[in-house]
Amino acid sequence: MANDGVDKGRRRFLTATTAVVGGVGVAVAAIPFIKSWQPSARAKTAGAPVEADISKLEVGQMVMYEWRGQPIWIIRRTQEQLDVLPSLDPRLKDPKSENGDQQPAFAQNEYRSLKPETLVIVGLCTHLGCAPKLYPELTPEPFDADWKGGFFCPCHKSRFDMAGRVFDGVPAPTNLVVPPYYYVDDNHIMIGISEGAA
């Protein structure tokens, strides 16, 4: 019989060696595929938190930063603008900011902010993404005879108050978005991450 001379130990060795080499080959071939799932350095930078310097931000002023390709507006509100916010509740779609997707939990308050005087908000209308214009004065405007300050979107006439809360009866479905942020110190805000988040 021709099979009587087969070395079964050698056969097992060759089979095991082939399996190991094949496994290593599959692992090496999978590395580029798995690496392609990781975001590029450019993508990581685009989503990275941004530190905003508000040391020179005066009462009534607004500065703009960019985070994840979106304009982030930081506004130092006046006491008069803050005082009028509760009176607008009956005119708003979501006066208590109950839609949790629109802001971090810390901003589910009357001012939609960590500190009442400073509003940090994404400057894009929640209707179709146009940039609303800030009308901070508490004076009648052509688009609202009882205007108490806020944002007006010229694209489709949506209106938001000085906390970014959307008025009822306008195309925008939800309040302006508040991004995650925290105060590094009194003069610096870290946009894109909440304090204590990893």
Score class of each variant (00 low, 15 high):
G150R: 02
R159A: 05
M190C: 09
V21C: 08
E98R: 14
C155N: 05
A172F: 02
L114A: 10
C130D: 05
E110M: 10
G25Q: 10
A27P: 00
F160E: 04
Q79T: 10
G129T: 06
A172S: 07
S113V: 00
D89F: 12
S158K: 02
A2N: 14
G60K: 04
N175P: 00
R159M: 06
N109F: 13
V20T: 07
S40D: 06
L92R: 10
P180I: 04
E141P: 00
L128R: 11
V184F: 03
D89Q: 04
V6L: 14
R159F: 01
P116E: 11
Y111N: 03
W147Q: 00
W67S: 04
L82M: 15
L88H: 09
L176I: 06
P71E: 10
K96E: 13
Q61L: 01
Q102E: 15
P136A: 08
T139N: 09
L128E: 11
V59R: 11
T18R: 13
A52G: 01
E58K: 15
S194V: 04
N175A: 08
P104N: 08
A48V: 02
T126W: 08
Y183S: 02
S36K: 11
I189T: 01
A2F: 11
F106N: 01
G169S: 10
V50H: 06
V20W: 07
M1L: 09
C130E: 04
L114W: 13
M1N: 12
I74E: 03
S194G: 14
L82S: 08
V120N: 04
I34C: 03
A107L: 06
L92H: 10
L134I: 05
I31S: 07
K35S: 10
R76K: 15
H127F: 11
H127E: 12
S87A: 15
D53K: 01
A41T: 04
G123L: 05
K35H: 12
V59E: 15
F143P: 00
M162E: 15
V177C: 02
D185M: 06
K115V: 10
V21H: 09
L138A: 14
G169V: 03
Y183N: 03
I31W: 13
V20S: 04
F143W: 11
A16E: 11
D7M: 07
P32H: 12
Y135K: 07
Q79E: 15
G60W: 03
N99K: 10
P171D: 05
Y65H: 14
F151H: 01
P116W: 05
R77D: 05
D168T: 04
I31D: 06
V28Y: 11
C153Y: 08
G100H: 12
K56H: 13
V24M: 13
